[in-house]
Design a protein around this nucleic acid. Sequence first.
DNA 1: GTTAGTACTTACCTAAAGGAAAGCGCTTAC
DNA 2: GTAAGCGCTTTCCTTTAGGTAAGTACTAAC
Lengths: 130, 130
Amino acid sequence: MKVITDEPLPSKAKCAGSLKNVLDALYVLNGKWKLALIFSLMGSSKRFNEIQQEVTGISAKVLAKELKDLELNGFITRNVYPTTPVSIIYETTGYARTLRTVIGELSAWGQQHREKIKQSMRKQVDIAKA
Amino acid sequence: MKVITDEPLPSKAKCAGSLKNVLDALYVLNGKWKLALIFSLMGSSKRFNEIQQEVTGISAKVLAKELKDLELNGFITRNVYPTTPVSIIYETTGYARTLRTVIGELSAWGQQHREKIKQSMRKQVDIAKA
DNA sequence: GTTAGTACTTACCTAAAGGAAAGCGCTTAC
DNA sequence: GTAAGCGCTTTCCTTTAGGTAAGTACTAAC
């Protein structure tokens, strides 16, 4: 067991940058819905109500707010088509698609995480301390 | 321009699962700090004050809460060494390390995102609609 | 006229996140 | 004794996220 006491700056400088990157990414992608919304629109462009149906649980207010936010940050565009009642269709930008790998990894991780949780619930916990 | 009106369920069923995965992942990894803390401890095991110094901006209260949360979820372990004043060292578990790729992607994306933001601030915005 | 649908907005409210500052129990150094 | 350091906890407070429900502006159908 190595008790760290006299190592003020081992290699922190080089890691601090990466840490800042993580923090920066989380800053624009925060909240419960942003990544899910981008993911939903990456599948196909959709209109307001369609999004609300797919992303179950989101309220109209929050959805409107998040869509504005995502548009301001350049992740999606809001297209108004002058059909008889105007159609408003949201779609992802190319920039949002740079998040594809991030979201892909997150989705894959989320899947195996759910599996793990289900198993540990069956075991009823005997892992007080591993 | 393709106005979606008569496509109730094109391929939603297969995407809904992935969407749920994303939501599930975000559920355990929510908040400003969790991924950053895991990332910090992935670099090297640390004690309380060391973490607080590296992850600048986090308060003692929030750090204590997040560490408890991460321990409960099996991402980190809290090791108490019976040195003269007890040393408490936090380290990541193997499970936390399954997040390595996710965090790696997030960090890489955060880096290029900051670059993009810096550029668009110089240009002073002439990208009303691309 | 009413009703219905789309895409929201507005008002109100609760809960949770997060921050600042102080305190606490312990030990060691002076 | 005092002071300082560690690893927190406690208290108080503000901010933010998010939810519900109602309303609004438009149009078209009945």
